[in-house]
Design a binder for these strands. Sequence first.
RNA 1: GCCUUGGUGGCGGAAUUGGUAGACGCGCUGGAUUCAAAAUCCAGUUCUUUCGGGAGUGAGGGUUCGAUUCCCUCCCAAGGUACCA
Length: 941
Amino acid sequence: MEYNFKQIEKDWQKYWADNQTFKAEQPSDKPKYYVLDMFPYPSGAGLHVGHPLGYIASDIFARYKRHKGFNVLHPQGYDSFGLPAEQYAIQTGQHPAETTKANIATYRKQLDQIGFSFDWSREFRTSDSSYYKWTQWIFTKLYDSWYNKSSDKAESISILVSEFEKAGNASVKAVCDDDIEEFTATDWSAFSSVEKQQVLLKYRLTYLSDTEVNWCPGLGTVLANDEIINGLSERGGHEVVRKKMKQWSMRISAYADRLLSGLDTIDWPAPLKDSQTNWIGKSKGALVSFNTEDNKHKIEVFTTRPDTIYGVSFMVLAPEHELVNQITTAEQKQAIEDYVFETSKRSERDRMADVKNVSGCFTGAYATNPFTGKLIPIWIADYVLAGYGTGAIMAVPSGDQRDWDFATKFDIEIPNILADKDGNAIDISEAAYDGKDTFMQNSDTLNGLNYKKASKLVLKEIYDKKIGEAKVNFRLRDAVFSRQRYWGEPFPVYYKDGMPQMIDVKHLPIELPEVDKYLPTEDGAPPLGNAENWAWDTVNNKTVSNSLIDGETVFALELNTMPGWAGSSWYFNRYMDSDNNGEFVSKEASDYWQDIDLYIGGSEHATGHLLYARFWQKFLFDLDLVPKDEFAKKLINQGMILGTSAFVYRIEGTNKYVSKGLKKDYKTAAIHVDVNIVNSSSELDTEAFKNWRADYKDAEFVLEDGKYIVGHEVEKMSKSKYNVVNPDIICQQYGADALRLFEMFLGPLEQAKPWQTSGISGVYSFLKKLWKLYIVDGEFSVSDEAASKDEEKILHKTIKKVEEDISNFSFNTSVSTFMIAVNELTALKCNKRAILEPLSVLLSPYAPHIAEELWAKMGNKDSIAFTEFPVLDESKLVEDSKVYPISFNGKMRFTMELSLSLSKDEIEKEVMAHEKTIAQLDGRTPKKVIIVPGKIVNIVG
RNA sequence: GCCUUGGUGGCGGAAUUGGUAGACGCGCUGGAUUCAAAAUCCAGUUCUUUCGGGAGUGAGGGUUCGAUUCCCUCCCAAGGUACCA
């Protein structure tokens, strides 16, 4: 009767699959609970031990909630569109769909052997046309919508059209392009069809525009800001340059305020909320116009410190600013052109590399400070960004370090407008002072006022002078939604007279066409330009050969595809009703499931997926298509599991390797070595090393004590560092239950922690010990005897801790609790059903296979999965009492912690039992015992 | 620079209304069992010590009878972010 985990795990996985044990009920009278993992992109490398961490945690919670009587939705699927499959296709010619299919098969096999309680009947892939049909549909909905600032929500574009017909656009308050001219109802009706479409495009929530994009020549595509790290592409590390292209964009800026305020309503980790807050970057300030000296031009600036306007001594425009050419004087023309050319040549990367370097060029023009009336020079400099604010600033060198640096370098005046509370000027000779705890000086009507009062007053004056207004500015820009890639959702869009037209939902999905090669075409069009049947027949409503394009009934289709985040921005809604062919999700399903109760995934999605998904959810909510405007109530970021890399030390210039302890005597280079040929005491298998790779065939070693000892370092788990541990091997050697317990035991869920395979022996021997509890004289046996007080105490202690831990997501300490319980029960030789049955239920979320097996062996018919969670009986918990002296109102008192279950008499007894201790502590004996609620007893000395 | 999180034995980590610091596991040491090994079981394992003790949760200070826990200053590490006006 050995603990045969291989057989047990195989049997129960089959049982769960055959019985569809974890299929969510629908409809159901039970309360719902929706637990979701961020779905994986199925990469070719398969899973390593780090990947299942979050899945194990969510699985524990899902199983726990089932025990608690909830109807649990715990689905899984795949985010299967993406760049790696496409890159592989470019290299090998293999269709991305094939690669993806094969990778998913591997993933599924790996996931299944860990014993997750996923409801696989709801599985889908974002690359399924039955799924992306609805991604395309949501796109058309966005296209058919605009953002009404008056009602603060998205509305149908037809409402906007009827408004235009009635009264033009003067009274329309919308989030839209900023280059819109006013028109009346008469103007509107006079517009041609194409003109009308052009106007409407500026209002739609998804729109076409010439956008300056991050073009990555290495990948042949456009990247979003969050796909760029330090000026290089996240994938591949290729250079990224700025380029103008006609692109679809998402008007996420319309939701900036709601995305910000919505954060207060959800239970997400603080760092994640902070990074979204930063990303949205709301800043309150003012728009102020400065006239040029000749009064011909107005330069509008955005500032968060309008109170410092008396300290403005120059202005700076971004080199790309549209007024640069118009205001530059003849003498400065050449210098300015040179400077603009220089900056445009510099890549983002160069610009970031020398942030410290102050550069700029004088335009020769002057503007008037509207408050002081003084003339101030207008410069251009690349520290002012065209894309933020108005692309121009009023420079206050006394209060802004960059302005101070600039003024110092180019010898511009630095007027001091800042004083302390006593009216003494603040020293700005060495650096600017950017604190807000100052009082104004040399500022006319603002003198002596603090930051708050001065800001308020100056805003009023700006408004009265009609030179500006208060303004809230966001860093968040509209998201570019076009990718020049093959392996993504095609747009449901064709072009008529150069204007985009949506294809009706009736004719969706527009399926991804076949192409012979996955690279951009010769003339630089996206890969879909290679497709031969990529035209839209508006009579028969189907895709047809490009040769039939006539501009009358057959039109060219959009060649771009959607970005990776399109499919992942709404998928959580689809699991609620994944087989529905008529709707993206039915009203009944979304009314029942509502939103995700617990969402688990990595923090790397903070400003990508998690922001876009919130945006789409709010949009769908505005259209009354989903019941909640935030899609996930609670979110947990699981920490990464790091690999422990191993190193050998090659003596420089040789093929000789020195053991770690002796390396200080040599000049060495550390080289990664496969962790699989190193044993648990850091000893290298030198023969395996020689056979590992051809270069090491003739390797020689300098040993210490006859062994080669490797060095270790904790790093991210990755193939190239040879530190990847495959869960398959762990499952083979120790079983899925041991893997699950160990991953939880490693440390707090949200924290990064290193993997050490040797540590798994602890949880493995725990499982063996548990199994042995049931074996008496070689036979499986449980006793029906009543449990003793000690045994009950062990059980209830465990119930209490495990339940607390699960609700706090501290799964790591539960594992310790189980170990302690089993050690104690082993010492008592307890094989009583009254203890072991509830213990199995407690353990089942963590180690479901062994729990089910023992549950069945104890003679229970139904699966343990739906058995009620054991209820805590506090009276069984008799803890030892503790005595502490405390001081209260000057008198010496004592505090004593007693078990809750004790009666008044028992408390008296306990107190008297501690009399001696108390006397020792304070030299007195207690006179009176005061019992207060809870477990504290005050004893007045 | 800014924001966030964290800093406890050889290692991963326990310890919250402030109350016996180091649970549990790994590793290590000794023992039992074995022809031997594996497995298993038992004991020990923060440091230091003249065996009475003493010190100890990144450093320093504060509050308190009592601080890993609360407050202040600083140091270090990890993650995010950045010419954002």
